[in-house]
Deep mutational scan, measured.
Amino acid sequence: SELMNSSKLIRMLEEDGWRLVRVTGSAHHFKHPKKPGLVTVPHPKKDLPIGTVKSIQKSAGL
């Protein structure tokens, strides 16, 4: 199965306009000026399962 580095996923979010608002432990929480909701990324993780990545991307509207 495909894995993604959390840094790469965070870069994709930031390029889309998401900004880090809070860190709780290894959970990084992002908000967007125009899009609704809060997106949480486990970080640092070298090997996020593709299912997790897809669900984060979906929440972020990517």
Rank of each mutant, 00 (worst) to 15 (best):
S1I: 13
S1A: 11
S1Q: 15
S1F: 05
S1W: 03
S1P: 10
S1V: 13
S1M: 11
S1N: 14
S1E: 14
S1T: 13
S1Y: 03
E2M: 10
E2K: 07
E2Q: 09
E2H: 11
E2L: 08
E2R: 06
E2T: 09
L3A: 13
L3W: 07
L3T: 15
L3N: 13
L3I: 12
L3V: 14
L3P: 15
L3S: 13
M4D: 05
M4E: 05
M4P: 05
M4G: 08
M4R: 06
M4V: 08
M4W: 15
N5D: 15
N5Q: 12
N5Y: 06
N5I: 14
N5F: 06
N5T: 13
N5R: 06
N5W: 06
N5M: 13
S6L: 03
S6V: 03
S6T: 04
S7D: 12
S7F: 15
S7L: 12
S7T: 14
S7K: 10
S7R: 09
K8E: 14
K8S: 13
L9Q: 02
L9G: 01
L9C: 05
L9F: 03
L9P: 00
I10G: 01
I10N: 02
I10T: 02
R11H: 11
R11T: 12
R11D: 11
R11S: 12
R11E: 12
M12N: 05
M12R: 08
M12S: 06
M12Q: 09
M12Y: 07
L13Q: 00
L13P: 00
L13H: 00
L13M: 06
L13E: 00
L13C: 02
E14D: 05
E14R: 11
E14V: 10
E14W: 10
E14H: 10
E14N: 09
E14L: 09
E14Y: 13
E15D: 14
E15K: 11
E15C: 12
E15L: 12
E15W: 07
D16E: 06
D16T: 04
D16M: 05
D16S: 05
D16G: 06
D16F: 06
G17Y: 02
G17E: 05
G17N: 05
G17M: 03
G17L: 03
G17V: 00
G17D: 04
G17A: 03
G17K: 03
G17Q: 04
G17S: 04
W18G: 00
W18V: 00
W18D: 00
W18H: 00
R19P: 00
R19G: 06
R19K: 12
R19Y: 12
R19Q: 09
R19D: 06
R19F: 15
R19E: 07
L20W: 04
L20Q: 06
L20S: 05
L20T: 06
L20C: 14
V21H: 11
V21F: 14
V21T: 09
R22Y: 12
R22T: 07
R22W: 15
R22C: 11
R22A: 09
V23S: 08
V23T: 07
V23D: 06
V23Q: 10
V23G: 05
V23A: 13
V23H: 06
T24F: 10
T24Q: 10
T24K: 10
T24P: 01
T24I: 10
T24E: 13
T24S: 12
T24A: 11
G25W: 12
G25N: 14
S26D: 14
S26E: 14
S26K: 13
S26A: 10
S26C: 12
S26Q: 14
A27S: 13
A27F: 15
A27M: 14
A27R: 11
H28D: 02
H28M: 06
H28Y: 11
H28A: 13
H28L: 06
H28T: 05
H28R: 08
H28E: 04
H29C: 11
H29I: 15
H29L: 13
H29F: 15
H29W: 15
H29N: 07
H29G: 06
H29R: 10
F30C: 01
F30P: 00
F30A: 00
F30Q: 00
F30M: 06
F30K: 00
F30D: 00
F30N: 00
K31H: 08
K31E: 09
K31V: 09
K31A: 10
K31P: 00
H32K: 02
H32T: 00
H32R: 01
H32M: 00
H32L: 00
H32I: 00
H32P: 00
P33L: 08
P33F: 10
P33V: 06
P33T: 07
P33K: 08
P33D: 11
P33Y: 09
K34V: 14
K34I: 12
K34F: 12
K34P: 00
K34N: 12
K34E: 10
K34R: 13
K34T: 14
K35Q: 03
K35I: 03
K35W: 03
K35M: 03
K35D: 01
K35L: 03
K35F: 03
K35A: 03
P36M: 08
P36K: 11
P36E: 09
P36R: 11
P36T: 09
P36C: 11
G37R: 06
G37A: 06
G37N: 07
G37P: 03
L38C: 12
L38R: 09
L38I: 15
L38N: 08
L38Y: 12
L38M: 12
L38H: 08
L38E: 12
V39R: 01
V39N: 01
V39H: 01
V39T: 04
V39G: 01
V39C: 04
V39L: 07
T40A: 12
T40P: 04
T40S: 14
T40L: 08
T40G: 06
V41K: 01
V41S: 00
V41L: 05
V41W: 01
V41M: 03
V41H: 01
V41E: 00
V41G: 00
P42V: 05
P42N: 05
P42A: 05
P42L: 06
P42F: 05
P42H: 05
P42K: 04
H43N: 03
H43W: 04
H43I: 02
H43F: 03
H43P: 02
P44F: 04
P44R: 04
P44Y: 04
P44G: 04
P44L: 04
P44W: 04
K45E: 10
K45F: 09
K45H: 07
K45I: 09
K45A: 07
K46T: 13
K46F: 14
K46C: 11
K46A: 15
K46S: 15
D47I: 15
D47V: 13
D47H: 15
D47Q: 11
D47T: 11
D47W: 13
D47K: 12
D47P: 06
D47S: 13
L48Y: 02
L48D: 01
L48K: 02
L48F: 05
L48I: 12
L48N: 01
L48A: 02
P49T: 09
P49F: 05
P49G: 09
P49Q: 06
P49A: 11
P49R: 06
I50A: 11
I50K: 07
I50H: 10
I50V: 12
I50W: 15
I50P: 12
I50Y: 09
G51Q: 13
G51R: 10
G51P: 06
G51M: 10
G51S: 14
G51F: 08
G51N: 14
T52Q: 11
T52W: 08
T52I: 14
T52G: 02
T52D: 07
T52C: 11
T52K: 08
T52P: 02
V53P: 01
V53D: 02
V53C: 04
V53R: 04
V53M: 04
K54F: 04
K54G: 05
K54E: 14
K54A: 10
K54Q: 11
K54I: 14
K54C: 15
K54Y: 05
S55W: 10
S55N: 11
S55L: 12
S55R: 14
I56C: 02
I56Q: 02
I56M: 02
I56Y: 01
I56T: 02
I56F: 01
I56W: 01
I56D: 02
I56P: 01
Q57T: 13
Q57V: 15
Q57C: 15
Q57G: 05
K58G: 06
K58A: 13
K58V: 12
K58D: 12
K58T: 10
S59G: 07
S59C: 12
S59V: 12
S59W: 06
S59P: 01
S59E: 10
A60R: 01
A60K: 01
A60I: 05
A60S: 05
A60V: 03
A60W: 01
A60L: 04
A60H: 02
G61A: 05
G61D: 06
G61C: 06
G61M: 05
G61I: 03
G61W: 03
G61V: 02
G61T: 03
G61H: 05
L62W: 04
L62T: 04
L62E: 03
L62H: 04
L62M: 08
